[in-house]
Design a protein around this nucleic acid. Sequence first.
DNA 1: CCCACCGTTGCAACCGTTTGCGCGGCAAAG
DNA 2: CTTTGCCGCGCAAACGGTTGCAACGGTGGG
Lengths: 355, 355
Amino acid sequence: MAATSKDDGKAGPRRGGVTLREVARLAGVHPGTASRAINEETRGLVNDATAQRVLAAAEQIGYRPNPIARGLKTSRSHTVGVLIPDLTNPLFPPIVRGIQDRLERDGYTPLIANTDNDAERERGSIDALSARRVDGLLTATAQADSAAFAALAELEIPVVLINRQVLGGNMRSVAPDDRAGVRLAVEHLVGLGHTKIAHLGGPAATSTGALRSESFVETMRRLGLDADPALTVSGGAMTEAEGERLCRQLLAGGAEFTAIVAANDLVALGCYDVFDAEGIDCPGDVSVVGFNDMRFADRFEPPLTTIRIPHTEMGVRAAELLLEQIRDPDSPARHELLEPTLVIRDSTAPPRRDP
Amino acid sequence: MAATSKDDGKAGPRRGGVTLREVARLAGVHPGTASRAINEETRGLVNDATAQRVLAAAEQIGYRPNPIARGLKTSRSHTVGVLIPDLTNPLFPPIVRGIQDRLERDGYTPLIANTDNDAERERGSIDALSARRVDGLLTATAQADSAAFAALAELEIPVVLINRQVLGGNMRSVAPDDRAGVRLAVEHLVGLGHTKIAHLGGPAATSTGALRSESFVETMRRLGLDADPALTVSGGAMTEAEGERLCRQLLAGGAEFTAIVAANDLVALGCYDVFDAEGIDCPGDVSVVGFNDMRFADRFEPPLTTIRIPHTEMGVRAAELLLEQIRDPDSPARHELLEPTLVIRDSTAPPRRDP
DNA sequence: CCCACCGTTGCAACCGTTTGCGCGGCAAAG
DNA sequence: CTTTGCCGCGCAAACGGTTGCAACGGTGGG
């Protein structure tokens, strides 16, 4: 391969496009030959000298292969769809960033669509993406029972699930180890001396929500504590609004508690809101631990104790799994679990001795 | 590959491919006619009854036009490139979201690339995007002097600048009214009684940075105050780290001040960091106002007084300007300014009477 | 009655690349 | 000096739509 970092002064990428034909003519070969020379995988089919001549010609006139034309012939678009609920949710930008960076390295381009967790929009996005002939799909939205989920399967293109996993399916996935995460959270709280711990869970229809809740009661039990059903509620989404609603519901229930493990950081923020409104001191009156360690979690009041998961890496791994499957559709399905870690800040403290 | 004989009848398991030909055959017309019937703009050329027949046939077998093939012939990809510094910067997700939503309505798909404000990466992204034959470009990155900027112009495709404007150019742009924004900030501070106000500016090479700084000294002067040069510094980026650096520099300078107007919220957060480290009370010792009102600005400690700009709308308007230009390349260039508003929180207060 | 014209549709040439096929020619084998 | 094999390369047919052009039947005007 010729030096790629050559400092070219006059490569003018013209809009109208230099075509392969022109390269071929300049190199004095047939377009077919030029094509073979330019493609890495087929370069072996042409004489070394000719290949060099073609490459030089291409360089000289600034040839850029037209992916549209290529895609038409090969029915590979070198694009992949990315389905997320909402880019505006701070959880996703780092994930997407990881995806973009990894994909870019391999010449793939992500097409990002927001679904707002709306089944109809999701369905529509899947349609649009498949119309654009994406080579694969990364999705952070699939609910276990969603009809859109069926649509995914029937698409017959590589799919990898992010931040979710599906039970029996042979769909690849990468997600944080949710069980381990809340285990860390509960153990931290118990270590601090808490015994009456509440859980504000996410939607049971998502593996994330379900797993975290499961692990909560499991861990409580294992530690010999009572997971009071009145203290483990779950909501319809992991948002500040839902967190607020759930927290109020908890308070209204009347059951005592000194700590909360929230389904995620946003839910934890919802708790902060009711604390402020009700004059509850955190962590004095009640401790809170979040999940995700999203950006700025260290800057809230109080700085939030939470479970950190490697967002960017999650995106990167997801992209890698997808690329792998695109290249070898028969490779075995894999489910990756990313290790979470506890990061202790100021929203957790030992419970008051005597209320 | 196994020999695919010259079949034309028995269609195998179709990957994604109901073709226009099949629709035509089902409707009993020529593919060309089917094409005209399906395209809105050319439908008038075919008999109404035939058009209905074709449409019905298309519906029946679930035909989806192949944008790749279409793009090859029309040299329109119905995609637009979006250049941003870093998706992870909380300023951008809402903008991008606005872009996506608006573009989607018109059947366009955004291709998002991160440049990290690195000239080389930017150049590379522009190359990649133009290789993908985007129909236009939205960019939130162009620095006034950037070489990449020249590359943009020479691309000869519609471009609209976001959050930046370029002086003489005929390039469309949409940006917040930066001047008005810092005017609000300064007036607020002065109204509170501050007279020794510092400014932590962004890169002078960006219109955002330059304009905000300009407006700062201008407003100070207009209000009969002294814009002490020792108190108006500017950095190389609008980040927490730069904010921290600049703030320390200010402190080291020794000149007195009771308030800071920061180039943006991130820079303000940098100030918070040095306040924490140095035991400075905000707003007691010094007031701070940010710019952007990014997500969570109300949750920092203290909640940040800042200038709100309509992020999502900015994205929407940018997309609209671009679509307009794509459809009519000769339409007059326009520069839109979005009205900022002051949102007062707890990081600003009257200066202490007596230090 | 002929012709010009109109609305409608078929025909075929693209758009830029990839790729199966086959053909020369040269070297090794017989 | 033939035969065999292989290497390089040219040829042309796709891929799925779009679109200028021509054909065609019918109609109204001259």
